[in-house]
Amino acid sequence: MTLLVGIFFAVAIYLFLSQHIIRMVLGAAVLGNAVNLLIFTSGRLTLEIPPILTGYETTTGMLTANPLPQALILTAIVISFSFFAFLLVLSYRAYQELGTDDTDEMRFAEPENQDLPPLGY
């Protein structure tokens, strides 16, 4: 499992390092999964017993899966989905406006060969 998390991370980061925004967006999606799995694994794994209390008595000591990371991940999934959608639309719009998907060519905010700032007072 740990090894799988590693593969997830490697792929996500490799995608991030690409110059193409679309690949970076894919990387973001994979990275989301990677982090979720990381949290999930560090909350220890138990097979097949969901954290739902059977019957209506207060039971303790029952060996259920750890509910805490699950709660964390549940929101994380939804948030990372919104984030992913936002990134996707953002890159789509950037592509529309700037006509490129290569981050090297996206120099609108930081143009190349900027002039010196004014030296007066």
Binding site: F40, L45, L47
Partner: peptide, 12 residues
């Protein structure tokens, strides 16, 4: 997620 006892996560 399903395998490791997290049906909610799995659905989501």
């Amino acid at each position: 997620f399903m395998l490791f006892g997290a049906p909610d996560l799995s659905f989501t």
